[in-house]
Each structure stands twice: as C-alpha cells, then as structure tokens.
C-alpha cells in the first residue's frame, strides 16, 4: 500500500501486544489508516476494541513493562516513529502530535496550577521563557473561551468544573500548534450539553489552526457530527472505513450495522401497543484477545456468518468511492438493507 497523498500520519499494519498472566493480548492486530492534513478522522468501536491502544501506540505511550508495538509502521510527515529514539519521541509529543484524554477530572495534575501545566509544554517545546510560556497559556485559555483567563492561570484543577478542565486540556494540547491532535473519548465523561460545546470548540479550533484531529469514540452520534472519515474497529482490527456520509448512508459491515442499531432511534414511531422498538444490542461478547482469532473476528456474533467467515480472515476490499470493508458477505449484507 502506498500513502495517500497529503497524509500527515500513516499507520500501517500496526500490531500492539500486551503480556498478561493469561497470555499475550493482541490489542491491535494489523490496523492501517491515514490521516490527511487538517482532516477529522473518527475511530469507532466498543470498549476494548483497541482504539485507545492505537492512539497510545501512535505516541508510543504503551507502558514498556507490559506492552509493546510488535510490528507495523507509523509514519508522521514521512518520518518513521516506531524506530525513533525515546528522546526524539519526547520532542514530538505535545508539540507536533498531542493528545487529550477521557477523564478531565483526573488528567490534570492536582498540585500544579493550570498556567504552569500549559506553560511548561510551551517552554519545553518552543524553547521560550517562562514569562512567554505563561503569556501563551493565557492566550490559549482565552482561545478555548475560559472567562477571566488571567485569573484562572493561577488556579488549581480542583477549582474548575469538568467542562472547564477539558477546555484546559484542549488549550494545553493545542498550545504548541500540533499537526495532529488525538482525542481519546474527549467528551464521554461530560454532561450532554457540555459535550456539544466541547466538540464545537474542537471543530472550530481545527478550522482555525489546521490541526488534524483523530477522534476516538464509541459514540456514533459524535462521529456523525464531527468527523469527515471514519474507521470502525473490532477486536483489534479495522473492519470498515468510509467517508462519514457514505458510512451512515450504507454501512457495509454487519458490525457497523449492529453499532448503528444500538443507537436509540427516536425517529421510529411507536407502534400500536405504544412501545418503541427496543434498543438493539449486538448479541454475544467481544472475543478473547489472548487466543489467535481464526477467520473474521465478528463471525461468532454475526447473523450473516458462514463457514468461510469462521475459517478465513476477510480482506479489506474497496466497495467503491473509498469505502473499505472487511467482510465476505457484502452482497448479502447489502441486499438485507
């Protein structure tokens, strides 16, 4: 495979594994995708599908005591990250690729002021003075629309609300104008109204700064509203990838269909008995990743599964217009729609 023109981040056949007492967990099992300059890519899947591990792998933040990138390639602006020294990697993190996390309540250091935590990033990567770093921190807080930013600089995280802390995280992550921002479930822990505000803010800042965003989420609603392209992951593998409209128009993988079925549908009218169709859940459980998966990982839970699905791993095929899917039974799935 060759890189997409204009891709800033190219992930190829990534395998990330963890050693546990029960054996080796193949958390990411051969995932490839590109992120184009300035685009918003969504990575969707249930918890445990390997989407967060993929993000941590890109920044090489997998704890070395338990896990490692077993094989694959991650190229950032054409530079291979998997073979970079730890020192070079550190200069990249928070500077050219930065990350925000799910838990704003615990992701900020409780004993350091907000200003220090933003400024140290700037001082570290842009080599400016602490004074200039603080000034930049102020600008960033202002940019993420924290009122009274000057005063907030000297406050501690416990003095801020959850939404404000996530704004601080965003300010921190964007403080060095990174080319890529990886956001791992950035709104999951927040109230619904705050969620929308934070997502709007991220999109607005993306337009302003041209930072590409990799948005990791289990929430298809968030994906539909914010992303341009979507990668669907299941059991450590990419099962489908498509422009967001195409995916919602015609999801091709049975798993994606299952995920969409799991969204409560308010547009469906209640039937005569007054009950709405129940929220569909995908039957069965996510496979155990310590055992090698033969065939399609989703086969045990899939209504379309055949013997071939259970014995042979389906390759990703182009179903047209950049819509990739890994399924043997696309035609049957299509007809079922």
């Amino acid at each position: 495979m060759t890189g997409t023109p204009g891709a800033i981040l190219e992930v190829r056949d990534l395998h990330t594994q963890f050693s546990t007492l029960d054996g080796v967990v193949r958390a990411v099992d051969g995932v490839s995708f590109d992120v184009a300059r300035g685009e918003t890519l969504g990575i969707v899947g249930e918890s445990g599908c390997g989407k967060s591990v993929t993000a941590m792998s890109i920044l090489r933040l997998i704890p070395p005591e338990t896990g490692r990138i077993a094989s694959g390639s991650i190229k950032f602006e054409g530079e291979e990250l998997t073979t970079l020294s730890e020192e070079e990697m550190k200069r990249l993190r928070g500077h050219r690729i930065s990350m925000i996390f799910q838990e704003p309540m615990t992701s900020l250091n409780p004993v350091l002021t907000v200003g220090t935590q933003i400024a140290e990033n700037v001082v570290r990567h842009l080599g400016v003075s602490w004074k200039a770093g603080r000034e930049r921190a102020f600008e960033m807080l202002d940019l993420v629309r924290i009122a009274d930013a000057r005063r907030r600089l000297d406050e501690y995280p416990h003095q801020l609300s959850g939404g404000m802390r996530q704004r601080v995280m965003i300010a921190m992550a964007l403080s060095c104008d990174p080319q890529v921002l990886i956001a791992d479930e950035p709104t999951t822990a927040l109230d619904v109204t705050i969620q929308a505000q934070i997502l709007d803010l991220m999109i607005e800042l993306k337009e302003k700064t041209g930072t590409a965003i990799v948005l990791i989420t289990h929430d298809l609603g968030v994906v539909a509203e914010t992303t341009e392209r979507v990668v669907v992951m299941y059991a450590g593998r990419k099962v489908e990838q498509a422009p967001v409209e195409a995916l919602f128009e015609e999801p091709l993988h049975p798993y994606t269909r299952g995920l969409m079925g799991a969204i409560p549908r308010l547009d469906v009218e209640a039937d005569a008995a007054g009950t709405r169709p129940r929220l569909q859940e995908i039957p069965g459980l996510v496979p155990i990743l310590t055992q090698p998966i033969v065939g399609c990982a989703f086969a045990p839970r899939c209504g379309f599964a055949t013997d071939r699905c259970r014995s042979e791993r389906p390759p990703l095929v182009d179903a047209g217009a950049g819509h990739l899917v890994a399924c043997w039974e696309i035609d049957r799935v299509r007809r079922a729609a």
């Binding site: 928070g94 996390f101 992701s107 250091n109 409780p110 350091l112 140290e120 990033n121 570290r124 990567h125």
Partner: peptide
C-alpha cells in the same frame, strides 16, 4: 499510575520533570 502522569508523558516532558515535579 495516575492519569495526570500519563498526561505529563503525553506532553513529552523530560523524565526528570515528570518524576520530580509532577
């Protein structure tokens, strides 16, 4: 093992600063 240490590492801070300050 806390989340904020992960954050500090994701910012590419020097090991010394993560250990001795954060």
């Amino acid at each position: 093992s806390q989340d904020y240490i992960r954050t500090a590492n994701s910012k590419g801070l020097a090991t010394g600063r993560v250990l001795l300050l954060h």
